[in-house]
Design a protein around this nucleic acid. Structure first.
Lengths: 162, 162
DNA sequence: ATAAACAATTGACACCCTCAACCATTGACC
DNA sequence: GGTCAATGGTTGAGGGTGTCAATTGTTTAT
């Protein structure tokens, strides 16, 4: 998220210049739609670190909790989902484990593998985090119902055919 | 980023569990639409570090170049746009300046502030970066024209009223 | 003229990330 | 059975990103 950055989370508004060079009107229909979504995307992602910080989590830790939704997950699998090196996950999990949010359990089938499970505290924290994440940002919340329904339907179709 | 995170950029698919606990059908219209957008958002953001790496940039450096679109920008302003501490920007700009992408120019009006400008090389790199960023992800590219047009119009309205 | 506010930097410290090297375990092959 | 390559996780070196507290130089208000 890396990538996202940590920081004070005052009121943020996006600078028009950020899209400069993207040629708003140009390109095909996909480019036009994408450019606009891209704007929402980046302005929202700017808040993610602050949002994670509300739960005393780094952005990446929040991602991990997010991914650890259901049952156990091998470290290597997590590394793949996070698109990062396995060695990175070691320290990541170390810190989460030290905070009592996650547990390493050796796999029965393959003793090389360590499975990750949320502790009770971890599951509780994840619940609160997910609830917070599902709150739509102002830009969405302010949309008229018509647009919201259309948006939802479009996205459902897109995610289904993908 | 880092929040986003840096990492190998193989083929990525999102794990259903990531949305677990978000209660897909529940909530009002805003929540429903948002949950779906949220999915797109996170899967796409996962690729951002790899995308930046194509230009030998860290995710944050790519953000900075993005923001530095038009004229000069004070360091403090950049810090505000990045939602990060001013002290962080110092090192950030140090590295970009060392690579010849950005220049510090003392302001005429106020000798405390240093204005950032893209060098020629920086502007060229930014151009290529922005072109790359404007390429819609597969999920968008695969949408039918009807949906794309609707999506574009909805987003235009939303960004305008915001 | 003095004091408060501000822009940028520095230094200490922590996290995130990669790469290369390493250990233990597994599975295939002779 | 014994050997060897492949795999999962950890460690260590090195660098980017981020914070906070303290410092310097400049501006602005009183």
């Amino acid at each position: 998220m890396n990538a996202f950055n940590d920081g004070p989370s005052e009121q943020v508004t996006c600078r028009p210049a950020a899209t400069q060079g993207l040629a708003e009107g140009a390109g095909g229909l996909p480019e036009q739609a994408w450019t606009l979504l891209f704007e929402l995307l980046h302005t929202h992602m700017r808040n993610f670190p602050a949002l994670a910080a509300e739960f005393d989590l780094s952005p990446v830790q929040a991602h991990v909790l997010r991914q650890l939704g259901e049952g156990a997950l091998a470290m290597s699998t997590l590394a793949h989902y996070l698109s990062c090196d396995a060695s990175n996950v070691t320290g990541l999990v170390d810190r989460l484990e030290a905070r009592g949010l996650v547990e390493r359990k050796s796999s029965e089938q393959d003793r090389r593998v360590k499975m990750l499970v949320l502790t009770e505290a971890g599951a509780e924290l994840r619940g609160r985090l997910m609830a917070r994440l599902s709150a739509p940002p102002p830009l969405i919340a302010a949309m008229p119902d018509e647009d919201l329904a259309a948006l939802r339907d479009i996205m459902r179709r897109a995610l289904k055919t993908q």
